[in-house]
């Protein structure tokens, strides 16, 4: 195989760590490739070695066996300086430096390029400004890093990695602790950066649905000693995603790419109608373990009266109650048995 257009080429890699002279293997025989300009999401349940893989690639952790080739050269053959110019990281460990401005933090990314005293030249300053612009933090450049929100901090650290001007960027759970819009924004930003600057990006994440939506490539670690790679859609259709994350509590819905709870439900009533209110009533019922769509006709019936904004519960003949909101009708339904 021709590896020259792969920025990263992992061959027969075993990762893990040494614990008191005891070798703890976490994954073995990994074979993974990544091209320039690709955004790759590393997904899998907790404890399968996502962080361990990232730390092995960035040489913070020694690999146990196999090869990691960066631009066709083994990472162990790089000197500190050249590796720092080829690979940058954004980590989960928090940066807690008071009096460190955002632009000073981003300037740290120029460390491998600056002279003995760390003096920034015009080119360094341009890269710093450009990186801050790319993540959209220009209005916060003079602010202290520790005063930023979690999402802004993450963006600042990404800008630091961008200023490092590397062909490969590794991010360990960059979307943890962020609200949904920020997660979405960060991933969209990263994908844009990967494509526009022809940079390869690997990020580990627990946000499966987002990863499936945004990634060019997925590295899936379902469990020990098996991994799958591919584009998101193929992995979904092959059942690999569903196999990796489904269990007795959760099932993966192929159509919506959502996980749903597996709950044993009781048949009590029929819910009629298809208004939005009825749909939310059905959700509430499922959460309470009550089937919203029983196959046979039940004695009780719930419906929504849109003209009066009321929820109505009735048996075959009589109206049992009229309710203002879902909470109230839910209480009544739960009391039927």
């Amino acid at each position: 195989m021709d590896y020259t257009d792969n920025i990263l080429d992992i061959r027969d890699l075993t990762i893990g760590y040494l614990n008191d002279d005891k070798v703890v293997t976490i994954q073995s025989d990994l074979n993974l490739q990544l091209k320039k300009g690709e955004l790759c999401c590393l997904i899998g349940p907790n404890g399968v070695g996502k962080s361990t893989l990232l730390r092995s690639i960035s040489t913070q952790l020694s690999k146990l066996k196999g090869e990691i080739l960066l631009n066709g050269i083994s990472i162990n053959d790089y000197d500190n300086q050249t590796l720092a110019k080829t690979l940058s990281v954004v980590l989960t460990e928090s940066v807690q430096v008071p009096n460190l401005k955002v632009n000073e933090l981003v300037a740290m990314g120029r460390f491998p390029y600056t002279n003995f005293w760390g003096k920034l030249n015009n080119e360094d300053q341009e890269k710093i400004d450009e990186s801050i612009h790319l993540v959209g933090l220009q209005t916060l450049a003079e602010r202290n890093f520790i005063e930023l929100s979690d999402g802004e901090k993450q963006k600042a650290l990404i800008a630091k990695a961008l200023a490092q001007d590397t062909a490969l960027i590794l991010l360990d759970e960059p979307t943890a602790f962020l609200d949904f819009p920020s997660k979405m924004a960060i991933l969209a930003e990263l994908r844009k950066i990967a494509h526009s600057r022809n940079v390869a990006i690997i990020l580990s994440t627990h946000d499966l649905e987002l990863a499936l939506k945004m990634a060019d490539k997925i590295w899936l670690f379902p469990n020990k000693n098996e991994f799958k790679t591919g584009i998101p859609e193929d992995l979904v259709l092959s059942g690999a995603i569903s196999n990796a994350f489904s269990n007795e509590l959760l099932s993966f819905d192929l159509k919506t790419a959502h996980f749903t709870q597996r709950i044993k439900t009781r048949d009590i009533l029929n819910v009629e109608g298809n208004s939005i209110e009825v749909e939310w009533l059905k959700r509430a019922l499922i959460r309470k373990g009550i089937s919203a769509n029983p196959n046979n006709n039940m004695m009780f019936k719930a419906l929504y009266d849109g003209s009066n904004n009321k929820y109505i519960l009735q048996n075959e003949n009589d109206i049992i109650g009229i309710f203002d909101n879902i909470n109230e009708i839910l209480k009544k339904i739960e009391n039927i048995n």
Partner: peptide, 20 residues
């Protein structure tokens, strides 16, 4: 002074920036 600045970010970041 230069490597001391990088060490502010923690060992992992400092190492990634090329600090021995």
């Amino acid at each position: 002074m230069k490597p001391m600045n990088a060490m502010l970010l923690g060992d992992a970041y400092a190492q990634n920036l090329g600090v021995n």
